[in-house]
Computed example of a mutant assay.
Amino acid sequence: MTATVNATTSKAPTGTDIGLAIVRVSVGGLLAVHGSQKLFGWFNGYGLDATAGAFAHMGYDPGKFFATLAGLSEVVGGLLLALGLLTPLAAAIVLGTMINAVNVARSGGFAMWELPAVYALVAVAFAFAGPGRLSLDAGRPWQRQGLAWSAGAIALGVVAALVTLAVK
């Protein structure tokens, strides 16, 4: 008698698990780098004071508050996404931040807003797909997945973006 291994119950990572991990770590890491550029000037960034001036120029007043909010959102959302930790919350944070980035960049033409749009779409995809088995959420009691959690994460991200746009 030959034993067969079911890919869905096996403990070994699948190609899907590896693919999700690669996208999560890559996109989450890049977002964290963007945030650290805003907050600390790392990776050839401008730092908080210059970023605050740019945010004020874009109509986000007070600039320092909104620059800090954007930087923290990118760092925290990016790191949570990269780790696959609290994934619905990470997706909401990234989506809300990127909706604001698309709004700011849209007047500059497609080349200016395509990257934040891609980040937003990746966040939506992770809200639906979950982080995969190679994540800190996998198999934990706090892991949340499914259509209700996906819809909730997306709604939270959109509402947070709209509130930010309304009060800026």
Rank of each mutant, 00 (worst) to 15 (best):
L69E: 11
Y60H: 13
L39A: 03
A50M: 07
F66E: 09
L30V: 12
L31K: 10
W42H: 05
G63H: 06
G45T: 04
Y46A: 10
L30M: 15
L30K: 03
T51V: 10
A32L: 09
G59A: 13
M58N: 15
L31N: 08
F40I: 03
F66Q: 08
G35S: 07
G35K: 08
H57D: 12
G35E: 09
V33H: 02
W42M: 08
F40E: 02
L69S: 10
G35P: 07
A54Q: 15
T51F: 11
D61T: 13
A50G: 00
F43E: 02
Y60T: 05
G47E: 04
Y60V: 04
F40S: 01
F66A: 09
L39S: 01
N44R: 14
K38P: 01
G35N: 06
L39C: 03
D49E: 15
L48Y: 10
L31R: 07
F40C: 02
F40M: 11
A54T: 15
T51K: 05
L31G: 06
Y46T: 11
G53E: 13
A52V: 07
A32D: 10
T68N: 05
V33M: 13
F66V: 08
S36I: 06
G53W: 05
A52Q: 06
D61L: 07
H34R: 02
M58W: 15
A52R: 01
G63S: 06
S36M: 14
A54G: 14
G63N: 05
A56M: 00
Q37S: 01
G63D: 07
G47Y: 08
A56P: 00
L31W: 14
G45V: 03
Q37R: 03
S36E: 06
A32N: 08
A32R: 09
G47M: 09
W42R: 04
V33S: 01
L69W: 15
F40R: 02
F55L: 14
G47Q: 04
H57R: 10
A52Y: 08
M58K: 15
A67W: 09
D49Q: 14
F40Y: 12
D49C: 04
S36D: 06
Y60W: 15
H57N: 12
T51G: 03
L69G: 04
S36Y: 08
M58H: 15
L39D: 02
G35Q: 07
F55T: 07
